[in-house]
Design a protein around this nucleic acid. Structure first.
Lengths: 137, 137
DNA sequence: CTAAGGTCTGTAGCTGATACAGGCTCAAGA
DNA sequence: TCTTGAGCCTGTATCAGCTACAGACCTTAG
C-alpha cells in the first residue's frame, strides 16, 4: 500500500475524518495549533496527509485531557527532530500528576456529596440535610 | 452571644471573610447569584450578615463543584420557603452523577497515560513511546 | 494636609471552543 | 445552461466563570 496519490482534502472533510468540529479547525489555526494550510486557487483550505495526521494527534492528546498549551509543547517536541524521550516524559508526567490531583479532588467531593445526599429524607418536608450542610459554617 | 449588633461590612471585608475574590463578588452580583446590596451614602456596597451567609453558601457549593446554574437552583430552593427536601435531593443527585462520570473519565485517562509513560525509556533518544502512542492511528 | 489604600465603574482578557451572518463557489440535476 | 443547495470563506459574537486593569472617587491615619 502506497500513499503516493493521497489527495489533499477540504476543511469539511478534515472535520469528518478527524472527528474535529469544523469551526474548531479554524480556531486551532488562529491559535497556532495547526499551521495555515495551503489554499486552492479560490482560497479554499487544502489539507494533505501530514496535516490530517497532525490534527489526529491533537485530537488524541485532547482526549487524554492535555491542555492546548501542553499540546503545543508536545507538537513542538514532535516537530523538532532533536526531541528526546526524556522531554516528552516530563510533559506527560506533569499532566499525569494533574489528572491524579483532579481525581483526588473529585473523589473528596463525591464522598461529601454522597454522604450528604444519604441524609436526605427525600420527602416533601421543607427541611433538607443538603441545604443544612451548605448553610452551616 | 447575640447577633443584634453585627455591622454591615464592605466588599473587601466580605471577600476576606468568605475567601471569595473581590472582583468575583461583583461578578456574582451581575449574574444574579448575589443580590444588589444596599449602598452607603457614598455608594459603597454594604453587606449584612444574611448576605455574608449567602456568599458562604455559594462558596461551599462551588467547593463541591456545583455549577453557577446549579447554585442558582439551590439558592432558589433556599429562598423559596416552600422548598422540599425531594427537590434538593434531585439537584444534588444529578450533580453526584456528573461528578462520578468525571471521575470515571479521568480514571480512564489516568490508566492510558500511566501505561504509556511507563513505556518511556526517559533517555536522550529521539524515539518516544508517548509520541508514538499519540501518533498512531 | 497629605499620602496610601479602599472602592467605584466600565471594560478587556483568559481558555477552549462553538455559532452565526452574509457573501462566494462548486457540483449535480432538469 | 440554469438553478439550487451544499460547502466554504471571513469576521465577529457568545458561552462559563472568572480575573484584572484603568481612572476616578473616597476614607483614614499620621
Amino acid at each position: 500500500m502506497d500513499n503516493r496519490s493521497v489527495k489533499p482534502i477540504s476543511r469539511g472533510e478534515l472535520a469528518r475524518v478527524t472527528g474535529c468540529n469544523l469551526e474548531t479547525i479554524r480556531y486551532y489555526e488562529t491559535v497556532g495549533i495547526m499551521p495555515n494550510p495551503p489554499r486552492t486557487a479560490k482560497g479554499y483550505r487544502s489539507y494533505d496527509d501530514s496535516l490530517v495526521r497532525r490534527l489526529k494527534f491533537v485530537m488524541r492528546s485532547r482526549d487524554l485531557g492535555f491542555s492546548l498549551e501542553e499540546i503545543r509543547g508536545l507538537l513542538g517536541l514532535v516537530d523538532d527532530r532533536t526531541q528526546t524521550c526524556a522531554q516528552v516524559q516530563t510533559v506527560a508526567e506533569a499532566h499525569l500528576d494533574d489528572v491524579q490531583a483532579k481525581i483526588a479532588d473529585l473523589m473528596r467531593i463525591e464522598r461529601v456529596l454522597s454522604e450528604t445526599v444519604a441524609r436526605c429524607t427525600g420527602d416533601g418536608a421543607p427541611k433538607c440535610a443538603v441545604i443544612d450542610a451548605l448553610l452551616e459554617a
